[in-house]
Design a binder for these strands. Sequence first.
DNA 1: CTGTGTTCCTGTTCGC
DNA 2: TGCGAACAGGAACACA
Length: 290
Amino acid sequence: MPELPEVETVRRGLEPVLSGKRIDRLEQRRPDLRFPFPKRFAKRVAGCRIEQLARRAKYLIARFDSGEALIMHLGMSGRYLIEKPGEEAKPVPVATHRPQHDHVVFHTEDGATVTYNDPRRFGFMVMCAGDDLDQHPLLRDLGPEPLGNAMNAAHLAKRAAGRKNDLKAFLMDQRNVAGLGNIYVCEALFRAGLSPKRVASCLARRSGTPTVRAERLAPAIRATIADAIAAGGSSLRDYRQADGALGYFQHSFSVYGREGQACIKPTCNGTVKRIVQSGRSTFYCPSCQS
DNA sequence: CTGTGTTCCTGTTCGC
DNA sequence: TGCGAACAGGAACACA
């Protein structure tokens, strides 16, 4: 499920339920996810108020009035389910909800519950001091946010200069741009008209200044992510499901998952192809992406 | 340091 | 319908 747009959608869904609220109780139902849960997790959270629910790349970050912060990652299959008092739980629309994968439950002062469900358990939760969060090992090496001013052609060129991996791998690397994943890398490269197989260093001249390709790629990334967040947000009308799945599945992609289908670009008569790069599927149009 | 492959785990889909 | 194989939105880690 979650690349940056989905995580942002989840954040917006959780915000009205969690932000400014005291957590009366936390249930931890197993010892670990991908990593062990924080030590004395339930005790450290109980009674604390969430002052802010933020996002950095694909991480959700809850800041508590205790001075600590909770960094959460959804992995591949993580989602949050919200139940409010007086409203009956609605069935999850996309995948079946299996209660045995409910690993953490937050009980708020309002009587609402926020349940973290994650079948594959690639997600994790880490608790740390709230100051100097940027210097936390999970966060300090992240590249710029795709929607921030720092993500521009000059940045891409600087990072890509001399790199021998391909554009797909370059964009998947969170140190270069933070928050892109397999889907939106494919989509951004399609929008930029660039082949995922092209070497990353094609974004920079020998002098390190951006090429025309970098000048195309930066706005393509920005627009791809902005559009996806907008699509996710529009699915949040009913935010009892803050799982991002609605936005994810409603959104139709230009190339991702469209192997064998005609390129959607009106002036192109190409066919979308699937290849494997770094062990992951890449979808692209060989005809209009070069 | 850079680039690549493996690994964690469960669920769904696809081909026979 | 059953059944194994392939595949799935991530990223830490080991290794060449």
